[in-house]
Computed example of a mutant assay.
Amino acid sequence: MDIRQLARGSVEWERIERVIRTLAARHDREAVRVEFLDADNWLSTPCVIDDEWFIKIVSRQNALVHAVLTTGRNVGAFTSRTEGFFGRFDTPREMVEHEYEATQRMREIGVNAPRPIEAFEVNGLGVLVLEYLPEFESFEDVPAFVVENRSRELFEMLKTLHDHGLAHGDLRAENVLIYDDELYFIDATNVHENRVTETSAYDLACALAMLEPRIGARAAVDAAVAVYDPSALLRARRFLDFVRLRPDHEFDSTTLRSEVEKAADLGRG
């Protein structure tokens, strides 16, 4: 069994069936068609309803896994000489309500994200309902030239979040989608709202780390400095070692740090 599947666990069919019946009843539908997704996901059981809604079903075990990951990230933050700034959830309902609210807030400030429909609880399971985006591609899947062409746009979206006191907290290639020729953010995580300086710098470090293997350190930094000032890049540099600890980010931190420092020196000059 894949370790992600083991950690995620499985939700009994009877409980899933109750979720689907409840969702259909809430939207006055006698029946719905369900497609379960073979997603590489620790934190939910995902499915699509009637090619219209993307559903995340979150169990108590999912919430426990999230708490363990959050603890690890907060410990890792000490490598950047700062206290942890990731927030945990105590229940599946808290997890889905947070993602609903985070997605709504992104859309309110003009950042593309799937439209949130509702978040509720059924028999101890958290249920998040989002707009389904068919035929999207992630930054992980598109060719490098597409990533390079859209990289400045990525930083512009990120800065819009930061200018409004928000942060993504889990920026990875699979969480940046291209749909209908527009960029979308998905799967924002819980970070402390009173730590904007650190969370913004961490987001920026994650974006640079995500881009470096695809388009090179210089191109990634060039795209960032077109949007962010040198001081922001230097704050992000602090978090590169922390980001490198994550198994979902593999990048040349030495070269990236060097390009950040050169760009900051030029900006100050």
Rank of each mutant, 00 (worst) to 15 (best):
T197C: 10
R172P: 05
F139R: 00
R152W: 01
E174C: 05
A167Y: 02
E121C: 01
G126F: 06
D187M: 05
P213A: 06
E148S: 12
D180G: 08
L133S: 02
A201G: 12
R214V: 08
E174L: 04
F155N: 01
Y184I: 00
V142I: 13
D181V: 01
R150Q: 12
L161P: 00
E137T: 11
P134N: 02
Y184N: 07
R214Y: 06
V191L: 07
M157Q: 13
A219T: 11
A207I: 00
V127C: 10
I178C: 01
T197A: 15
H192R: 13
L133F: 03
L208Q: 00
A201Y: 09
V129L: 14
R195L: 07
N149I: 09
I178R: 01
T199W: 04
A220V: 11
A205Q: 09
R152P: 01
A144Y: 12
V191A: 10
R150T: 04
A173H: 04
A188V: 06
H164F: 09
N190Y: 15
A207L: 02
S200A: 15
S138T: 15
N149T: 13
I178V: 14
A220T: 04
F145N: 13
V122K: 11
E182C: 09
R195H: 08
D141E: 15
Y132N: 09
E121I: 03
Y202W: 12
T189M: 10
L177N: 01
E153R: 14
L211A: 05
P143L: 12
V146N: 08
H168I: 04
E131L: 06
F139E: 09
Y132M: 01
N175E: 04
F120V: 07
A144S: 15
T197I: 13
L130P: 10
E193G: 11
F139P: 01
D187G: 04
V147I: 11
N149D: 14
H192I: 14
E153Q: 15
M210P: 01
D141K: 13
P134F: 08
A207W: 05
A209T: 04
R172E: 11
S200E: 06
F136Y: 15
V122Y: 12
